[in-house]
């Protein structure tokens, strides 16, 4: 239990997907105009990443590894994650329309998101067990959500700032992201356990 808590803490803060691994930078820059949108995106990622971590871990250990097909894991994972997201989308549309309205437009965006695939691959690389994989997938996504919501909040303020003309828009957003990433480097000095 202690190991899993350490794993989760480290996935959220120390090895944050955005600020230290640079996975999922595309939605991070693209869907961070408004805090509400950023939260929706973060929830969708959390949902998909947790489920896909579980499914891909099972697929790898129960199907690919026994058959000696582990070298094809990337293709297999893309296929399964894409199918899974489609399935979840249809399921939500039918049975949980309110959640579908909140997450709906973000779900197709993360079908082939690198953060989702990245979480699945890290699980395999680190040799996590099933429980560890789910915990890692969930907490990495929580870290992503935290990062994108913080960033959206900063960007909401940036809109009223007056940086020099060449820095307006995306450039100042990228610089801000870099500064937040540097702040998060403070966590890497922590020793836990």
């Amino acid at each position: 239990m202690k190991e899993i808590l350490i794993l989760m803490f480290s996935a959220i803060f120390i090895e944050n997907f955005i600020f230290s691994k640079f996975y999922g930078c595309c939605p991070f820059m693209g869907v961070s105009e408004k805090p509400s949108n950023a939260l929706g995106m973060g929830m969708a990622v959390t949902f998909v990443m947790t489920v896909s971590s579980a499914v891909t871990q099972l697929l790898y250990t129960k199907v690919l590894l026994p058959l000696g097909l582990d070298y094809l894991k990337i293709i297999a994972f893309i296929l399964v994650i894409a199918g899974l997201v489609q399935f979840i989308e249809m399921f939500l549309k039918k049975f949980v329309p309110s959640l579908y309205n909140a997450l709906g437009i973000f779900l197709p965006l993360i079908t082939t998101n690198c953060a989702v695939l990245g979480a699945a691959l890290v699980n395999i690389q680190e040799g996590y067990t099933f429980a560890e994989s789910v915990a890692f997938g969930f907490s990495a996504a929580v870290g992503f959500t935290m990062a994108i919501v913080i960033f959206a909040g900063v960007r909401a303020r940036l809109r009223f700032a007056e940086p020099p003309k060449p820095f307006r828009g995306m450039p100042i957003a990228l610089i801000t992201a870099g500064l937040i990433a540097m702040a998060f480097m403070g966590f890497s000095g922590m020793s836990i356990g």
Binding site: L69, L72, I75, L79, V80, G83, F91, K93, K94, F95
Partner: peptide, 27 residues
């Protein structure tokens, strides 16, 4: 051949699942 077969089966299973789901969950 085994690799190709496995992926064909995987693709077919997911495809079938989605096809069934799209009918079953049709709104």
């Amino acid at each position: 051949l085994i690799a190709a077969l496995i992926f064909a089966v995987l693709g077919a299973v997911i495809g079938a699942l989605l096809a069934v789901a799209s009918k079953a969950f049709e709104v």
